[in-house]
Nucleic acid binder design. Structure first.
Lengths: 331, 331
DNA sequence: CTGTTAGCGCTTTCAG
DNA sequence: CTGAAAGCGCTAACAG
């Protein structure tokens, strides 16, 4: 492996000089710079970023934590957004696994892991409002941190999220505009800001529009098709049925399938409205609220960079958009 | 940040001793070890892995390269497999971006990036048999490397893949067993080992079974629904039509949709057989060949670890399996 | 403009 | 069993 010493020796200069040209510092004669550059090119030398990290305390690496098994459609696209802006800025992304922690002889949590790996900042995604104390270390540290969809703030911590309240409001207004007065909602898992916000938007709008609010029409469960199945099984047994169902995409799709399997037709018998605009929705013609996933990732990265550079710490709320397809009809 | 020096000072021992206990080396009196351990715990000290990397030349980090926009269903699951075994072994995963290369003043390619970041090994996924010279640096280096679905080998390079030839053979034999004698194939993009292997299996089996081979029934294109649409548009215009279509899942789904939109029914008018078993296939009741994606990732990681430890370099070929659902019928 | 020197936090001989 | 010292590859004062 070629090191800075090799280059210095070959170019007959000191390594300080080589360092200066590598870093594009001033104070090097143009001739010397060119000469060193040539040697560097000839040997295809690239400075070790680990040595660099050690001496500068800056690694050009940002960490990502995700809870186990969150490796889904949604976050993959967020990740893509993250990658694109961070990559542009010369950062690589360290995907922090946490398998080893449990058996460890030390209390090794987010903060410690970040310090240990020397990341310049960290993005946390897929975490819910459960076990919030897990994050204490991070929040009280000075490690620049951005949460996706979890509104935690601290001196060096901020978050990005879609405007879920507004999205839910848009959904309900749309349904109401179509003539629906009885709208059910299947919420995501309790404890997630995202799910709570959407429910808030739902309740608020139902109220504002003077629609019928019926607690029996509110369901809750995991972000999966099963949740949709379960809710539909209850709904179809009701005497006073809702005419429309509002749920996150995956759940909504489960609901559509359940409805069909029970001989109902969408949107003739029930209108179904999603939230997220996952790719799968396309295959069901699902009317839904689009979240800009790439944008979420991009915003998270930019915010993180801003925090690192102490330029801004303000949370970012991204707008959402209604995508009209074929699962809702006017009644 | 607490360093080894702090611990040494506080524990009134030398940092060499602290190092020994951290690394669980012998030659430390049990009493001393316990004392040091207590101080470590009290200060929640964790050694900097970057300093460690610098001095040991081992980073417990493995790199992953993916071409841009390969962030799809398939590879996400492979990634999950990778993460699970590597995490278990104490490795973190460095997702190597390559955005900066182009404008760089240096020829900075896979190999250089790996050396620069000091990864212990690298997994390459989603690369096709195009521009193979890109990999020369890596192949000629001693950086442990595992390719997923690309059969490149070198002194420290190997690969993992599913048994695509056999999978295609299973598919064709199944279709033939159902009475089909005219089977079309829509291949994936040329240049990918995966696509080539599947085509090989197709041809071989068509031949062995004495089925009709008609070059007009062989199509090729990107791994997308459009490819399926395009092929179907040609197929339905033919006088001598195939009765079954064999294609990778995404393409097969495009074909099913195109068929339906043109008033044909699956499997009544055409049988459609996929390959990959992507999750989306479930929503179409697609009969397909399952690739063990998690297994692919796990195998890649294990192989990489073996290469790193110089234990084994043999490529791994994973078996596939036929998943019978509703898109094929006997005729 | 250039080079010397002292670290960054850790591991690893090698004496004691 | 313990510690002093050198060194991993680089950066950053500071002299010259």
């Amino acid at each position: 492996m070629t090191t800075i010493n090799d280059i210095a020796r070959i170019a007959r200069v000191s390594k300080a000089t080589v360092s200066k040209v590598i870093n594009n510092y001033p104070g090097v004669k143009e001739e010397t710079r060119r000469h060193v550059l040539n040697v560097i090119k000839e040997y295809n030398y690239w400075p070790s970023s680990v040595a660099r990290s050690l001496s500068t305390n800056k690694s050009f690496t940002i960490g990502i934590f995700e809870p186990v098994r969150i490796n889904n459609f949604f976050f993959r696209e967020v990740f893509e957004g993250i990658e694109s802006v961070l990559g542009e800025e010369g950062y690589d992304i360290l995907y922090l696994t946490n398998k080893l922690w449990e058996n460890s002889w030390l209390k090794f949590s987010f903060k410690e892991k970040c310090i240990n790996r020397g990341v310049d900042g960290v993005i946390m995604m897929g975490f819910g409002r459960v076990n919030l104390s897990e994050f204490d270390g991070l929040l009280n540290s000075n490690i620049p941190t951005v949460f996706v969809d979890l509104d935690l703030v601290g001196s060096n911590t901020s978050y990005v999220t879609s405007n879920n309240v507004e999205g839910a409001e848009m959904a309900i207004r749309y349904l109401a505009g179509l003539g629906h007065k009885k709208i059910a909602m299947i919420k995501g898992p309790a404890g997630f800001k995202l799910a709570n916000d959407r429910f808030t938007g739902y309740q608020k709008t139902i109220h504002e529009l003077n629609l019928e609010y019926n607690p029996d029409w509110v369901f809750s469960g995991e972000y999966s098709m099963e949740t949709g199945y379960d809710a539909v099984n209850k709904i179809i047994k009701m005497r006073n049925r809702p005419t429309a169902i509002f749920a996150e995409d995956m759940i909504a799709i489960g609901a559509i399938r359940a409805l069909r399997e029970n001989g109902f037709s969408v949107p003739e018998d029930f209108s179904v409205m999603g939230f997220d605009n996952i790719e799968l929705g396309l295959h069901y013609g699902l009317t839904t609220i689009n979240q800009d996933r790439n944008g979420l990732g991009e915003a998270a990265s930019r915010l993180l960079l801003d925090i690192i550079n102490k330029k801004s710490f303000s949370p970012v709320i991204l707008p959402v958009e209604l995508i009209e397809r074929d699962t809702c009809r006017s009644i």
